[in-house]
Simulated scan of single mutants.
Amino acid sequence: MTEGNFVDYVKLHVTSGNGGKGSVHLHREKYIAKGGPDGGDGGRGGHIIIRANPNLWTLYHLKFKRHFRAGHGEHGSKNRSTGADGEDIYVDVPLGTVIRDTITQTVIKEITVEGEEFVVAEGGMGGRGNWHFKSSTNQTPRYAQPGVEGTQHDITLELKVLADVGLVGFPNAGKSTLLSVITAAKPKIADYEFTTLKPNLGIVKYRDFKTFVMADIPGIIEGAAEGKGIGHRFLRHIERNSTLLFLIPADAADIKKQYDILLDELRRYNPELLDKERLIAISKCDMLDDELKEELKVELDQQLQIPYIFISSVAQLGLQELKDKLWKMLNE
């Protein structure tokens, strides 16, 4: 999937259908000159239904269609015939989609289960026909209920990527390179910051035909929790990852400081992110000789309270050990 095809935020205007009118009709047939009321009910207006589709990975299919209108219910007719219900409109979304009210920004629903359906705009009820209103004192009512009008809503769909492992790091830390090496994903790679502007997903093949999903999130900068850089646009994708892999290059001036900054941005955005399993990968370790690596290990053992591993995506060093550690963390 190319970067331009990854859409994770759309605004929609949805309108449900009106209910059909109840019928005002008096029964008439041969030899029955004055039959009773037999007007049928109006049909229900169509719903707008959000439906989970596991075959979708993005909201791109909604990029150019922002208005959805359901069908109106048919009117009732004679012989107590109920009008047909209006056509329901289904809006398919990928798993991990959050539905918000555009005006209040409150979360209406989170779609996380395959095949899940949620009525976001209910169709209007059909009106009752005049046969409902027959009584001992009014045996020929000449009125019926009109149908209830449908509703209109402005909703926002946000996609939070569903992945097992989320890659966290500063711009140009080598996240996209790692993803391209251990999965079949083809993210854009270049030697400048913010090469990645949208999340990339890749399936990591493990031993005995097992797999897990890894997400490359655009680089975090200091102040991202307040919206700097690309801010909240990508931090929300980390919320659904069960394990966070912090990628810090071996040539960083201070590895511990970089890790602390990244952790602080996650904490300020959502403190619950700190409850996730964490692993640090020191990337670009092919630049270190054995002596430098040993010195760095001694330093990191004193500074870090979480496990770390040395890797090189280009030289393909430590990648199998990285997969083993991640698989163990995911399945503990």
Rank of each mutant, 00 (worst) to 15 (best):
Glu294His: 15
Tyr60Val: 11
Thr211Gln: 13
Val98Trp: 07
Val107Gln: 10
Gly219Ile: 14
Lys323Cys: 10
Gln145Phe: 06
Lys293Asp: 04
Asp251Gly: 03
Ile32Lys: 01
Asp251Cys: 05
Pro171Arg: 08
Glu277Val: 00
Lys65Gly: 01
Asp301Ile: 01
Asn200Ser: 06
Pro307Ala: 12
Gly124Tyr: 13
Tyr90Asn: 13
Ala163Val: 02
Lys188Glu: 14
Asn79Trp: 15
Ala250Phe: 01
Asp154His: 09
Phe234Ile: 06
Gly318Gln: 06
Arg66Ile: 03
Leu244His: 03
Leu197Met: 09
Ile261Gly: 13
Glu29Ser: 06
Val148Pro: 12
Asp208Val: 04
Leu167Thr: 04
Ser242Arg: 09
Thr102Ala: 11
Ile103Ser: 12
Glu116Ile: 01
Lys210Gly: 01
Ile255Pro: 00
Phe246Asp: 04
Asp251Phe: 00
Ala315His: 13
Lys34Val: 10
Ala224Val: 14
Glu332Ala: 10
Val213Ala: 08
Gly45Asp: 15
Ser16Gln: 03
Lys325Thr: 11
Gly83Ala: 13
Gly17Asp: 01
Arg207Val: 10
Thr183Pro: 12
Ala70Trp: 10
Gly4Cys: 09
Val119Leu: 06
Glu117Trp: 08
Glu87Leu: 13
Thr15Arg: 14
Gly71Thr: 06
Ala252Arg: 05
Thr183Gln: 14
Arg268Phe: 05
Arg28Ser: 09
Tyr269Phe: 11
Arg240Gly: 14
Gly36Tyr: 10
Gly124Gln: 11
Pro187Ile: 00
Ile220Trp: 00
Thr211Asn: 11
Leu201Val: 13
Leu330Glu: 09
Arg278Phe: 03
Gly20Met: 00
His47Met: 12
Asn172Val: 12
Val119Tyr: 08
